[in-house]
Nucleic acid binder design. Structure first.
Lengths: 340, 340
DNA sequence: CTGAAAGCGCTTACAG
DNA sequence: CTGAAAGCGCTTACAG
């Protein structure tokens, strides 16, 4: 199939003037007479002319497009963050291209290659859990394509970062369980290489320490960010000689796994085992019992990351200092942890 | 920030040959000597040269990119379908751009404008429930940008379509409820303008008819495709003097609403009310009780739509005839409808 | 086998 | 106020 489009040349031909004049008239240059301007604009309208953005990209080496890479768009946290990115990008005249890494380093690399070669103007990314090496992002930045991290950030690279106060969120969740009378609080954490796993683990440990509960090595298990992972680790925890009386899950998928495992094993929540997760609300309220959770301002994270990125894109030089924004999470208490 | 890239010109300069020769060598033209070719390829490698796809797009009026518009990427059905589209597109050397309409005609129009102006090569789309008018898609097709519909298709436009056998799915679900002894089977349907709403409604009616159950106007309610919609309509159904003993929900969101409303109102599933929905499996098995559902081959739908689209893009002319592919759905029976 | 030239659709100094 | 020319990075007939 063939595409035909109206060009500036065609307008010039029909009006018997030069392409330069048409171009100037269309961008409302002050050096063109009102009369010519009007003729050009009218004809452009009539012919349904739209400038070819590809030609402009070639000229300016800019595409007015930003990329977003997330592990998985089906995850509500990320789809909502993408909503926030789109919101800001749209209002500032940019388009958003969405990529999924599926937690694979190779897919992430392929996306950055596409971004570089298609001259995407910048990138917002939540790093794949598999990516211990992040040279591909550093290389993008060296090529002059700014990168802003959100949610999953990395210390290995200097750039703007937007994350949630994972430490605080985990601390609050753990302390809440302690105040509800739980004594043996287990934690199913995310994959070790991920930065947020560390922050959350610290928050958990510090809450225990504050309340004089001794930390037990065997109460912390690492898991993939999947429901199956949560289920398996729950089996392992409940098989312990000293069973936990509470489990704190590090992500919504993991928490779904904890929940279904506990139900399947015949435990009652919260009386046998209290549960708190890092979840999205819509999800947690559907379960029976509804799950208490640390909720994150995902939409706002997307907005902030996008706006930091656009500032970078539109400024001439690298900023003197990169910024890390830490947003607050919110503990929502539901039946799964409401012990009497 | 400034981007610098190696061009063909730079390679030509360093090697003291012409741009034309470099270009030919890189595309392995048979008219270039092996020796020159090797020199060019080696230097390109060394300089880390990548051709500028924007320049090629300008030349060919092709971008090797297809668009996908879905109502909502957070919906598992759509995110999985997008996975199928990406799968095929990737293997055939295309990139995928994802747009969300959020069920708004205006957002859908804005996406098609972007697609046209950025010279995206083609579009796969599930129409927004709000879009009774689909001129924006027709206009894309007239501009030579082929459009393939999936899931939400329209009779108002002639093009390839991929949908699920909604009639059969609804028929099977309803017949299953009848065989389990349900006599008063309600149906919470989707928005009226959507094609699949009609197909599913027909399947439901025909199953009743086949088994000699008289169709009751008040047993069918239309709802938005949201959980809140399902909840509201369930209140309305259960408030009827003659309560239904089964509810068949037209989408996963609606079915989640039915489920939570019934539980909240104190009904037991399946004994008081049996429930079947059009759902995604991962979702339905998390609920208590797990929900029986008509599952759809979403990934495969995406694959088929993408491959029909790429065929259109790569063929010179419009095909003599457009094709509608109808895939089979699958009824998975769970506790919510297992009456004794 | 290689190069000079034209052209994809646009913008923008440079002349007039 | 308007136009001719150069150029963004590439490809490809046309010459030689």
């Amino acid at each position: 199939m063939k595409k035909v489009s109206i060009t500036i040349k065609e307008i010039a031909r029909q009006l018997g003037i030069s392409k330069s004049t048409v171009s100037r008239a269309l961008r409302d240059s002050s050096e063109i007479s009102e009369e010519t301007k009007q003729k050009v604009i009218d004809l452009a309208e009539e012919l349904n002319y739209y400038p070819n953005p590809i030609a402009i990209s070639l000229l300016k080496n800019r595409t007015q497009t930003i990329g977003v890479i997330v592990p998985d768009i089906a995850n509500r946290f990320y789809s909502s963050a993408i909503g926030g990115v789109e919101d800001i990008a749209y209002s500032r005249g940019y388009h958003t291209m969405i990529y999924q890494s599926h937690e694979l380093l190779e897919r992430e690399r392929s996306a950055t290659r596409h971004i570089a070669s298609r001259r995407v103007d910048g990138l917002v990314v939540a790093i794949s859990s598999q990516s211990e090496n992040i040279d591909h992002f550093a290389s993008l930045q060296e090529q002059g394509i700014p990168v802003v991290f959100f949610d999953r950030v990395s210390d290995a690279m200097n750039s703007h970062k937007v994350r949630v106060d994972d430490y605080r969120g985990a601390f609050d969740a753990t302390e809440h369980l302690i105040k509800r009378g739980c004594k043996r609080i287990a934690h199913i954490a995310g994959p070790k290489p991920v930065s947020i796993t560390r922050f959350r683990l610290e928050g958990y440990k510090d809450a225990l320490r504050k309340h004089g509960i001794e930390f037990q090595e065997e109460w912390v298990l690492h898991s993939e960010i999947t429901q199956a992972g949560g289920t398996e680790r729950t089996y392992q925890l409940m098989a312990l000689r000293e069973r936990p009386d509470a489990i704190f899950g590090a992500s919504d998928r993991i928490t779904m796994g904890i929940h279904s495992a506990l139900r399947q094993l015949g435990y009652r929540m919260p009386d046998d085992v209290a549960v708190v997760g890092f979840c999205d609300l819509a999800m947690s309220s559907l379960l029976d019992p509804p799950v208490s959770s640390v909720t994150q301002p995902s939409f706002e994270m997307g907005q902030q990351a996008a706006s930091l990125l656009l500032d970078l894109i539109e400024s001439k030089n690298t900023p003197a200092e990169f910024e890390t924004r830490v947003l607050q999470s919110n503990l929502v208490i539901n039946k799964s942890s409401m012990r009497h």
